[in-house]
Design a protein around this nucleic acid. Sequence first.
DNA 1: CTATAAATTTAGACAGGTCTAAAAATAAGT
DNA 2: ACTTATTTTTAGACCTGTCTAAATTTATAG
Lengths: 223, 223
Amino acid sequence: MHTYTEENYLKAIYKLSEHSEEEVTTNAIAELLETKSSSVSDMLRKLAEKDLIHYTKYRGVTLTEAGRQVAVRIIRKHRLWEVFLVEKLGLGWEEVHPMAEELEHIDFERLIERLDAFMGYPKRDPHGDPIPSASGEVEMPRSCKLSEMNLATPLLVTGISNHTTAFLQYLDKLDLGLGTKLVIDEIMPFDRSMLVTINQGKQLHLSHEVAKNILAVVSESQR
Amino acid sequence: MHTYTEENYLKAIYKLSEHSEEEVTTNAIAELLETKSSSVSDMLRKLAEKDLIHYTKYRGVTLTEAGRQVAVRIIRKHRLWEVFLVEKLGLGWEEVHPMAEELEHIDFERLIERLDAFMGYPKRDPHGDPIPSASGEVEMPRSCKLSEMNLATPLLVTGISNHTTAFLQYLDKLDLGLGTKLVIDEIMPFDRSMLVTINQGKQLHLSHEVAKNILAVVSESQR
DNA sequence: CTATAAATTTAGACAGGTCTAAAAATAAGT
DNA sequence: ACTTATTTTTAGACCTGTCTAAATTTATAG
């Protein structure tokens, strides 16, 4: 098995390369893991030695297939635990991330398998992110940032790309969550904030920053 | 919070002093944790500095109240997770110990509380051990080793004091578990092995070693 | 193309834990 | 009580992962 720390590095690299084909930079990793780039640099050398990443000095890194498998497996566990914490224990979606952050490192094949079965083989976690399969496949949802979508089109919220407690609590207050239907009524040119109507009722004002972290698809039911 | 390692030391000291008032020796800890006594000695110094143990060089250790609280809390989590793994996930009592060994270090008050509630506030884990309360009280069961009990008395199995996979699998094969009613028919003087009848049916031959690890009480129903 | 800025890597130190080997303290036998 | 055996502790080395400070490489602006 890999150390707790190695696993966190691999997960960080996975997350940083998930939405772009680019090489991941040392600084980006350092920022995400809240550590110094010198520490990252050191660890990258070690991960490369173990063939978990492709690494050329000063050029950034990508995961090898072995590294990707490790990362995806961690993410699978993280998301399964989140479903458990929310669905079974009744914890809030805004508080489960740090718990799952620790649970994800516990590695017993039978435990994961039973946990998956116990929850009925869920496909998404409470934030709408896809749960990788046991064999490491990840179904990448084709949702877009709300900030990049068109006016007057019926949309469905399918994901949240910022899992901080503060952000999720804010969404709760707004009464906006996964499955919320909404339409963009207007976009303010000066700050790119938007007015949206949710569930054919309340109208909300969302900043661009907020809209960037909400993922949505064009609503099937009305297209 | 304390490190994973510190927690394991405190838990080990707790377990070693649970059934006797004696000071716990360096060697005993080393054996339980499968480490060298020099490492233990080092760690004891550190734990004493943090006021988690009472330590006089060459004289062994006992837990301080603070140390006991930490240990009991770990054990509470361990046993709650074991109940979850067996009752909810359907894992076998012989395979959950190593999993709980890792889960026990995860420390979120709300998680523990919810887990406890989810299982209906169980009082015992799947091996019959008492689950400490949130405030750190442990109800010490007054059961005795089967090896020390009398012939021809109706007994009830209430606990198992060896949690190894091999031992628990052996008990499964014998069809002997918590709640099994039994009577000691005969004790062989030369090796102290015994013949017992379980559930008013099958007769089994148990070695002294096995009988030492089975805990029982005189059966209420027939006394 | 060169000078400076930014990003990255190396060097050296440190903290937590572990080990082996050696020293010190306690326990036991006669 | 004295010598030996056992237990425990100390000393010194090593490994993982972190940091700061300094050096190096790559990127950028004239």
